[in-house]
Design a protein around this nucleic acid. Structure first.
Length: 137
DNA sequence: GCCAACGTTGGC
DNA sequence: GCCAACGTTGGC
Protein backbone atom coordinates (compact mmCIF):
# COMPACT_ATOMS: atom_id res chain seq x y z
CA UNK A 1 0.00 0.00 0.00
CA UNK A 2 1.15 3.52 -0.76
CA UNK A 3 0.52 6.82 0.94
CA UNK A 4 -0.27 10.18 -0.61
CA UNK A 5 -1.23 13.73 0.20
CA UNK A 6 -3.64 15.80 -1.85
CA UNK A 7 -4.25 19.51 -1.49
CA UNK A 8 -7.43 21.45 -1.86
CA UNK A 9 -8.42 24.96 -0.97
CA UNK A 10 -11.21 24.65 1.59
CA UNK A 11 -13.03 27.60 0.01
CA UNK A 12 -13.17 25.71 -3.27
CA UNK A 13 -13.46 22.08 -2.18
CA UNK A 14 -12.96 21.42 1.49
CA UNK A 15 -13.19 18.38 3.71
CA UNK A 16 -16.81 19.19 4.54
CA UNK A 17 -17.75 19.21 0.85
CA UNK A 18 -15.93 15.95 0.44
CA UNK A 19 -17.70 14.18 3.30
CA UNK A 20 -21.08 15.63 2.34
CA UNK A 21 -20.58 14.27 -1.15
CA UNK A 22 -19.16 10.95 0.05
CA UNK A 23 -16.92 10.49 -2.97
CA UNK A 24 -14.79 12.82 -5.07
CA UNK A 25 -13.55 12.76 -8.63
CA UNK A 26 -10.12 14.35 -8.17
CA UNK A 27 -10.16 16.42 -11.33
CA UNK A 28 -8.45 19.56 -12.52
CA UNK A 29 -4.85 18.46 -11.95
CA UNK A 30 -2.79 20.16 -14.68
CA UNK A 31 0.75 19.47 -13.62
CA UNK A 32 2.75 16.54 -14.91
CA UNK A 33 4.34 15.54 -11.65
CA UNK A 34 1.02 15.60 -9.84
CA UNK A 35 -0.56 13.68 -12.72
CA UNK A 36 2.14 11.03 -12.50
CA UNK A 37 1.36 10.64 -8.84
CA UNK A 38 -2.36 10.24 -9.56
CA UNK A 39 -1.55 7.55 -12.11
CA UNK A 40 0.55 5.67 -9.54
CA UNK A 41 -2.33 5.47 -7.04
CA UNK A 42 -3.92 2.09 -6.40
CA UNK A 43 -7.27 1.20 -4.91
CA UNK A 44 -6.88 1.03 -1.15
CA UNK A 45 -4.00 3.52 -0.93
CA UNK A 46 -4.28 5.93 1.98
CA UNK A 47 -4.49 9.66 1.34
CA UNK A 48 -3.98 12.66 3.60
CA UNK A 49 -6.47 15.42 2.77
CA UNK A 50 -4.74 18.79 3.11
CA UNK A 51 -6.31 22.23 3.22
CA UNK A 52 -4.13 24.81 1.49
CA UNK A 53 -4.18 28.63 1.75
CA UNK A 54 -6.81 28.95 4.51
CA UNK A 55 -5.62 27.41 7.79
CA UNK A 56 -3.20 25.16 5.96
CA UNK A 57 -2.95 21.66 7.38
CA UNK A 58 -3.97 18.03 7.12
CA UNK A 59 -7.61 17.65 8.12
CA UNK A 60 -8.65 14.12 7.24
CA UNK A 61 -7.95 10.70 5.81
CA UNK A 62 -9.22 9.39 2.51
CA UNK A 63 -8.72 6.30 0.41
CA UNK A 64 -8.43 5.62 -3.32
CA UNK A 65 -11.57 3.90 -4.64
CA UNK A 66 -10.94 4.14 -8.38
CA UNK A 67 -7.64 4.27 -10.24
CA UNK A 68 -6.65 6.79 -12.88
CA UNK A 69 -8.76 7.41 -15.97
CA UNK A 70 -8.99 10.38 -18.38
CA UNK A 71 -10.08 13.65 -16.80
CA UNK A 72 -13.63 14.38 -17.97
CA UNK A 73 -13.00 18.09 -17.42
CA UNK A 74 -10.31 18.00 -20.15
CA UNK A 75 -12.14 16.09 -22.91
CA UNK A 76 -9.85 17.40 -25.65
CA UNK A 77 -6.62 16.90 -23.79
CA UNK A 78 -5.61 13.27 -23.25
CA UNK A 79 -2.71 14.18 -20.96
CA UNK A 80 -4.74 14.55 -17.78
CA UNK A 81 -6.13 11.94 -15.42
CA UNK A 82 -8.35 11.72 -12.37
CA UNK A 83 -8.76 9.24 -9.55
CA UNK A 84 -11.72 8.84 -7.21
CA UNK A 85 -11.42 9.22 -3.46
CA UNK A 86 -13.64 8.51 -0.49
CA UNK A 87 -13.37 9.96 3.00
CA UNK A 88 -12.21 7.57 5.74
CA UNK A 89 -12.29 9.80 8.82
CA UNK A 90 -11.51 13.32 9.92
CA UNK A 91 -8.51 13.93 12.15
CA UNK A 92 -9.70 14.70 15.67
CA UNK A 93 -7.21 17.56 15.61
CA UNK A 94 -6.01 18.91 12.26
CA UNK A 95 -2.24 18.89 11.86
CA UNK A 96 -1.23 22.39 10.81
CA UNK A 97 1.51 23.18 8.35
CA UNK A 98 3.32 24.90 11.23
CA UNK A 99 3.22 21.66 13.24
CA UNK A 100 4.52 19.71 10.27
CA UNK A 101 7.37 22.18 9.78
CA UNK A 102 8.19 21.95 13.47
CA UNK A 103 8.60 18.15 13.41
CA UNK A 104 12.21 17.13 12.80
CA UNK A 105 11.01 13.76 11.47
CA UNK A 106 9.04 15.55 8.76
CA UNK A 107 11.93 17.65 7.54
CA UNK A 108 12.03 15.93 4.16
CA UNK A 109 8.31 15.77 3.49
CA UNK A 110 7.44 16.74 -0.07
CA UNK A 111 4.87 19.19 1.27
CA UNK A 112 7.69 21.42 2.49
CA UNK A 113 10.27 20.56 -0.14
CA UNK A 114 7.91 21.20 -3.06
CA UNK A 115 5.38 23.62 -1.75
CA UNK A 116 3.47 23.98 -5.01
CA UNK A 117 2.94 20.31 -5.79
CA UNK A 118 -0.73 19.38 -5.27
CA UNK A 119 -0.52 15.56 -5.29
CA UNK A 120 2.50 13.96 -3.65
CA UNK A 121 3.75 10.69 -2.19
CA UNK A 122 4.17 10.42 1.58
CA UNK A 123 6.54 7.99 3.26
CA UNK A 124 4.96 5.42 5.58
CA UNK A 125 6.74 6.86 8.63
CA UNK A 126 5.63 10.37 7.71
CA UNK A 127 2.06 9.20 7.23
CA UNK A 128 2.07 7.38 10.54
CA UNK A 129 3.39 10.38 12.44
CA UNK A 130 0.89 12.82 10.94
CA UNK A 131 -1.99 10.49 11.75
CA UNK A 132 -0.67 10.05 15.27
CA UNK A 133 -0.47 13.82 15.75
CA UNK A 134 -3.91 14.26 14.26
CA UNK A 135 -5.58 11.57 16.36
CA UNK A 136 -4.07 12.57 19.69
CA UNK A 137 -6.43 14.18 22.18
C1' DG B 1 -2.90 41.82 -0.33
C1' DC B 2 1.81 40.83 -1.17
C1' DC B 3 5.35 38.27 -2.85
C1' DA B 4 8.44 34.19 -3.66
C1' DA B 5 8.68 30.01 -6.04
C1' DC B 6 8.10 27.79 -9.96
C1' DG B 7 5.70 25.77 -14.05
C1' DT B 8 4.27 26.99 -18.74
C1' DT B 9 4.23 29.49 -23.00
C1' DG B 10 6.01 31.45 -26.96
C1' DG B 11 9.48 34.16 -29.60
C1' DC B 12 13.70 33.65 -31.56
C1' DG C 1 16.93 24.60 -27.28
C1' DC C 2 17.20 28.84 -24.68
C1' DC C 3 15.22 32.16 -22.03
C1' DA C 4 12.15 36.09 -20.94
C1' DA C 5 7.51 36.94 -19.89
C1' DC C 6 3.69 35.55 -17.76
C1' DG C 7 0.34 33.07 -14.84
C1' DT C 8 -0.63 30.33 -10.79
C1' DT C 9 0.00 28.48 -6.26
C1' DG C 10 0.22 29.01 -1.67
C1' DG C 11 2.41 30.88 2.68
C1' DC C 12 2.25 34.67 5.48
Amino acid sequence: MNYWLVKSEPDKYGWSHFTAQGRAVWDGVRNYQARNNLVAMQVGDQVLFYHSVTNPGVVGLATVVREAYPDPTAPDDPRWRVVELEPVMPLTRPVSLAQIKAEPMLGNIALIKQSRLSVMPIRPDEFELIVKLGMSV
